[in-house]
């Protein structure tokens, strides 16, 4: 070990950073060199003097205020309210929690129409009206029920068919009647047309005859005059 190497170990030695072996070697070496010992003692004394410097604690606690905003002020108000309402002791907190749970249970029950029922040693919770228990049927009863339902269905179908048939028939009758009336009207109209045509023909024929008579008369007169 050299003196410079020893000096490099002084800091670790003073602050307990050396292992036992290195520490012992250093102490042995320092014991052999008084200048190193004086230097180390001087450093140790300097540390002791430095520790004489007193220190004062801060007078006030620094607190960072949250930037003001509507949201933060509402949140602060809410947190303060919760804190003021919350009990301090553990027992109080437990009782508060139980009371909160019961309150929540009651509110939930009233909103969801919850019902509690205790019957025959059994406890049940249900929401809304309770559906009555279903009664079971035997096979014969089921068959009877089926037959009944089938008969009712058949009667119902028959009624429906009959009603449909009646309706169809009345519709048909109505249609026939309407068609007959239509034919009658058409016949009447045709007869009227024929009558009118015959009358016109008769008039036309008569007029022709008259004209013919006139023309013949004029011809005969003319012939007579020429003779």
């Amino acid at each position: 070990m050299t003196k410079d190497e020893a000096r490099e170990l002084f800091i670790d030695y003073m602050y307990g950073g050396l292992d036992i072996d290195t520490q012992q070697k250093l102490e042995t070496f320092i014991g052999q060199h008084s200048d190193l010992k004086d230097e180390l003692d001087g450093l140790l004394e300097t540390r002791q003097v430095l520790q004489q410097m007193p220190v004062e604690n801060p007078k006030e606690q620094i607190v960072i205020m949250e930037p003001s905003s509507v949201y933060s002020s509402i949140r602060n108000w809410w947190e303060n309210l919760i804190q003021s309402l919350s009990p301090r002791s553990g027992v109080g907190r437990f009782a508060f929690a139980v009371a909160s749970f019961v309150f929540l249970f009651i509110i939930t029950g009233s909103l969801t129409d919850m019902n509690l029922k205790m019957e025959g040693g059994e406890f049940s919770i249900f929401f809304g009206e309770q559906v009555p228990d279903q009664v079971g049927y035997s096979a014969a009863q089921v068959e009877l029920l089926i037959n009944q339902v089938q008969a009712e269905n058949a009667a119902l179908v028959a009624d429906i068919v009959e009603a449909a048939q009646d309706q169809q028939e009345s519709q048909f009758q109505l249609t026939l009647s309407s068609f007959a009336e239509y034919l009658d009207e058409q016949r009447t109209s045709d007869l009227q047309l024929i009558d009118y045509s015959l009358t016109s023909l008769e008039e036309t024929t008569y007029n022709r005859f008259v004209q013919t008579d006139q023309v013949l008369g004029e011809i005969i007169e003319t012939v007579s005059l020429n003779k």
Partner: peptide, 23 residues
């Protein structure tokens, strides 16, 4: 860091001696 501490303490020792400051 250790080197700075060493030289710092040495410098302080010198100053304390010149100002007659000791424990």
């Amino acid at each position: 860091i250790k080197s700075r501490l060493y030289y710092g303490l040495r410098a302080l020792k010198k100053t304390f001696d010149s100002w007659n400051i000791n424990k």
